[in-house]
Design a protein around this nucleic acid. Sequence first.
DNA 1: TTCTGTTTTAGAACTATTCTAATCTGTTGA
DNA 2: TCAACAGATTAGAATAGTTCTAAAACAGAA
Lengths: 140, 140
Amino acid sequence: MSGPRPFANALELLRNAGLRPTRQRLALARLLFDQGDRHVTAEQLHAEVLTASMPVSLATVYNALHQFVGAGLLREVVVNPGRSYFDTNVSDHHHFFLEDAGKLVDIPGDRIDVANVPAPPAGTAIRRVDVIIRVEREPA
Amino acid sequence: MSGPRPFANALELLRNAGLRPTRQRLALARLLFDQGDRHVTAEQLHAEVLTASMPVSLATVYNALHQFVGAGLLREVVVNPGRSYFDTNVSDHHHFFLEDAGKLVDIPGDRIDVANVPAPPAGTAIRRVDVIIRVEREPA
DNA sequence: TTCTGTTTTAGAACTATTCTAATCTGTTGA
DNA sequence: TCAACAGATTAGAATAGTTCTAAAACAGAA
Ligand SMILES: [Mn+2]
Ligand SMILES: [Mn+2]
Ligand SMILES: [Zn+2]
Ligand SMILES: [Zn+2]
């Protein structure tokens, strides 16, 4: 019956991940995980945390993002050269990429079938399958 | 019965694309299109053209690559943040990405079925569907 | 508290790419 | 044949995103 308990969640999240719950990491974790699924860039998150009047350096934002990826709390999505997106949805799913707006939109994993995938090259194993559907503003 | 005629092909290719057949563009087109399908980075291609003792500036390599993409002779493949690959195979196909080696391997378009693709967000149209299968060296 | 290893930080460094503006070249048509 | 001119090339500077460095701050243990 009680609502979400943001602070406790972030604290637990970091503890579980074996990361010291510093002020900076708590602030970033709350911004990332207290809302629904998100796709953010490092600079976006940095701007957000400053706006929330919790100054965190950009280096710390990058450090935290990579630690969160390493802990399986985030995944990195590559759609654009020269800019990474970090995705709070770590379940099996795919993406629309709205090129004009630079926005990612989730496609649930079970809404797409990737069938007949050939065997990977000798000596390699599949780590992940990414389907990116690039969409553009519809011609009028 | 005659073998391939590289020079004539590159010349024709550029003419068809509405691009002046300069020495630099001819050299780059030959390197790109006279062999089978290729996936190169700008720096790789630059190194190749220098080795072929045809000095071309890096700026020109980038200019030409983008012009070739615009003309539909190449497609850009994004798998890594901070580095673009250019693909001479412009037919409908997908990729294995060997993360350890930084190499792309083609998967013919008809070898993969992407089914049940949901409708794109309102006001947008699908431009392209990219399937990237990330593989890693198999654990021994 | 004090201590110790971890984290944060400002700013420098780095990498891939793009830009600038001066020079050069391919093409055209007199 | 050769100006003339638009288009192409170039070296080097600039930019953008990210990573690195090494010094200061901090969290947690004792
Ligand atoms: Mn990264
Ligand atoms: Mn590009
Ligand atoms: Zn997602
Ligand atoms: Zn390819």
